[in-house]
Amino acid sequence: MKGSRTFWTVLILLAAFHAVVLFAGFFAPYGYSRQNRDFPYAPPTRIHFVDSHGHFHLRPFIYGWQASSDSYGAYAVDSSETYPIHFFVGGARYEIAGLIPSRTHLFGVTAPGQISLMGTDGYGRDQFSRFLYGGQISLAAGLIAAALSLLLGLAIGSLAGFYGGWLDNALMRGGDLFMALPWLYLLFAVRAAMPLHIAQGQVFLLIVVVIGLIGWARPARLIRGVVLSAKERNFVIAARGFGASDFYLLRRHILPHTYSILLTQMTLLIPQYILAEVTLSFLGLGIGQPLPSWGSLLSGLQQYYVLASYWWMFLPAIILIPVFLGYSRIADALQERFAVVPL
């Protein structure tokens, strides 16, 4: 297959990114809610190998910050304090993938120093750690919502295609309703029907359900088409003649034809749904403080002074570009592989 090496490279890189996010506790030096009020909006920490005397150190180190006395939120590098970066250090407690408790972090510096690769936010929280923890929420929301949409689409599309008649008509007219609204308006309309102020844990579930519910119509239509053509195949008619039940026919002979569509739709829907969560949380209708999500990390940018002064607050959104590029590469490759007409 042409370009299969790039395909696998992209897939592995993307999987590695997801793994880093999954094990955020290990890769993040700090917890997502740990504040350091002495250093609000500190820029990303520079990592040094050569000290002020020109000596080279094999172990990288960082300098401390000195808060500037004349203006708020301005810092000067204090080269008298050096903090070497240690690897596999003990630190704040976390759970590996939400299960096994641990204290080991990939890297860190000793206490008064703070290493923040992506700077800090207004409460002095480490943006890098919050980005990783936020990824757990945003990526999970995208993945679960996409799976939910596809399951709904699969169920509805195969019912409509297989049984036809009035059921087909009713289900597809229902789908038309969902496609008669611009999808962001639909998303907000459904969000409007849900409670505004609820507990943190429920918000995530709510967001996933809202996003997952609205997107089933297009996959359902595609799957219906496949099922329609598959059920007229000779081997399906033969199996029916031998007395196979509807369920058996669907499971054994018809649904396997829909896998290619499910797979390509999945790679198209995940980035779209990640963005949906980001948009909702950005506008204050999704995940709220202190929980991080990629959307709530960006919501600070709605204030002009943050937007204009602290460029590193853009970093979470910029990192999304290669991630989405990866997803679209995979979607393109799958479409080419399955010879689906690209849309």
Partner: peptide, 22 residues
């Protein structure tokens, strides 16, 4: 086109706002 497609709308609009503010 594939690069621009991968840029989140939100980021693009925020950058335009940054352009205006700066």
């Amino acid at each position: 086109t594939s690069t621009v497609l991968a840029v989140p709308d939100l980021l693009l609009f925020l950058l335009l706002l940054l352009l205006a503010v700066r």
